[in-house]
Computed example of a mutant assay.
Amino acid sequence: MNKSKLGDLLSSLKFNDQGLIPAIAQDSVKNDVLMMAWMNKESIEETFATGRVCYWSRSRQNLWKKGETSGQHQELVDFLIDCDRDTVLVKVKQHGVACHTGRRSCFYLSVSENGDTTETMSVEIDPKDLY
């Protein structure tokens, strides 16, 4: 994407007071939701420049190039914006697992009517082997 079009995109998005926008990652083939993270203008620029999804780490206060240390990266397939322009959906080709717990998705806990939680997927990679 050229710089002018990217600038137009970034100026149209509604970032919060910290300059962040929620980003939901979804598998482009299976359509399962993999994770939710935050993006800022710089991480969106990096994502479009490289084709690999980049987020903003609130805990480290810097860019989080998904898979940089674990190898479990995400290739950008599509970048969608919601109707209010305050949330993005990144459709990705997931390489490996998406969750730091070693599961394919961060959304693996199901809550029953009585409030009990059940794990709906197992660990695929020992988290100690990821980092």
Rank of each mutant, 00 (worst) to 15 (best):
V97T: 13
R52A: 11
G7Y: 08
V29W: 05
I21A: 05
K91Q: 13
W64S: 08
K65F: 15
H95R: 10
T69W: 05
S12C: 07
K91F: 02
G102I: 02
L89D: 02
L9T: 05
L9Q: 02
F48H: 11
F15P: 03
D27M: 11
R103T: 03
S57E: 08
V53E: 11
A25E: 13
R58A: 00
E42A: 15
D84E: 15
D78F: 04
S11K: 15
K65L: 15
C99Q: 01
L20K: 07
L20W: 03
R58W: 00
Q94V: 05
F79C: 04
T69P: 00
N62S: 12
Q94I: 08
G67L: 08
R52T: 14
K65R: 15
T101C: 01
V92P: 06
L76F: 08
Q72E: 15
R58D: 09
L20V: 01
K41T: 05
V92Y: 03
H100L: 08
S28C: 13
G51A: 08
P22I: 00
F15G: 01
V97S: 12
R103S: 10
L6A: 09
S59R: 08
R85Y: 13
W38Q: 09
L9N: 10
M39C: 03
D8R: 15
Q72W: 11
V53C: 12
I81W: 00
L6H: 06
S4A: 14
Q61K: 15
R85S: 15
G96R: 09
N16Y: 04
V88Y: 02
G67H: 06
Q72R: 14
R103W: 00
V90H: 11
